[in-house]
């Protein structure tokens, strides 16, 4: 427990950096020297009231921040993890949180507990709706795709296996518009679809070899077609395409045919490749190897904001808030900046 608070951000300085679509709102300062590894926004329920909170994670500490007012945040909880280092925060909706590469679990009330959920050769993991967690472990013939469902108090309620494909799964994404569908990408350029209710593997679709080792950031089903946003950490710059960061693909799940709809490349004069990113609704944000954050509007089809490093500190994390239209941007030193988009 801590009484640390943030200072309201210096708004005019931000306008200079982002003439356009981003406005700095607040900053969460990390007093330790620990490296920042993840940040997320979530609804936190306490005494029957829900508050939009921010979860920050450094190498061995997860912190919960609640808003004091529209500009300031207060750190209300810290959890220390002594048995392992934190790699990612995964949030399960609603209420229950599973943290730390989904190794540990907290009930979210005053009697926190940490439970080992999964260990071993974890390849991919994603928090799903209805308090479910999907994980893939192992490779090829010993690959296991598992769904864990949790009760209100955080206890494990159900475990179910999904049929594994004959390729190693890299990433998962829920499908907006088709509630029980789960999508995955594989190491050899396939997109696979499961039925979460039955565990069936419905389809394996090979996509163009130019989408090698794609990371899937989101999928939605619309009028019989699947629209999928992927990023390509390994994509190379070319004269014709520039530096591609995100691709929007359309797939017909019935025929397994696919096509590219939109290519999000870096604006001229910007250098770098995709390092990590996040997509929410129709906006996609990426941290580039140059330390800059770039944002694309997938409906408009172009880059709408560039956020260069602040105070000579490169960006290392970017997430869209799930509670409002804010962008959470993290630096390696653990400081988190909150922008209104």
């Amino acid at each position: 427990h801590s009484t640390e608070q943030t200072e309201p951000a210096d708004l005019p300085a931000c306008d200079r950096l982002n003439p356009g679509n981003l406005q700095l709102v607040s900053e969460l300062k990390n007093p330790s020297s620990s490296c920042s590894v993840d940040v997320s926004a979530m609804w936190w329920e306490r005494a029957g009231a829900k508050e939009p909170c921010i979860v920050t994670a450094c190498e061995d500490v997860v912190s919960l921040w609640k808003p004091l007012n529209s500009l300031q945040w207060e750190k209300v909880h810290t959890w220390h993890f002594t048995e392992c280092l934190i790699a990612r925060c995964l949030l399960l909706a609603p209420r229950i949180c599973v943290w730390c590469r989904a190794l540990l679990c907290s009930s979210g009330d005053d009697s926190e507990k940490q439970v080992l959920l999964k260990s071993g050769d974890i390849k991919a993991m994603l928090g799903l709706t209805k308090r479910r967690l999907v994980s893939s472990t192992g490779t090829l013939c010993n690959q296991q795709i598992q769904i864990m469902t949790f009760a209100d108090d955080g206890s494990s309620k159900d475990e179910q296996l999904l049929m594994p494909p004959d390729e190693t799964v890299l990433t998962f994404a829920e499908v907006r518009g088709t509630q029980e569908a789960l999508l995955g990408t594989t190491t050899v350029n396939s997109i696979v679809i499961w039925n979460l209710k039955t565990g069936q593997l419905l389809k394996k679709m090979h996509i163009d070899d130019s989408y090698q080792a794609s990371v899937c950031h989101g999928a939605c089903s619309e009028k019989g077609l699947l629209f999928v946003v992927v990023s390509q950490p390994c994509a190379k710059e070319s004269q014709a395409l520039g530096s591609p960061v995100f691709h929007l693909l359309v797939i017909n799940p019935k025929t397994a045919r696919s096509a590219g709809v939109l290519l999000c490349s870096l604006p001229q004069g910007q250098a770098g490749r995709f390092l990590e990113g996040d997509v929410k609704d129709h906006v996609a944000a990426a941290v580039l190897t140059s330390g800059t954050i770039a944002i694309w509007d997938l409906l408009l089809g172009h880059c709408t904001a560039i956020l260069p490093p602040v105070s000579e500190q490169s960006w290392s994390l970017v997430k869209w808030s799930s509670t409002d239209s804010h962008l959470l941007a993290g630096q390696k030193d653990g400081n988190i900046f909150i922008y209104r988009y």
């Binding site: 039925n195 025929t255 045919r257």
Partner: peptide, 23 residues
């Protein structure tokens, strides 16, 4: 791209694939 290149589209693709796929 044209949706014609993607072949016949089914609005009930999820149900249809679920009935065709092995259990």
């Amino acid at each position: 791209c044209s949706t014609a290149d993607l072949g016949p589209i089914s609005l009930n693709w999820f149900e249809e694939l679920s009935s065709e796929a092995p259990p």
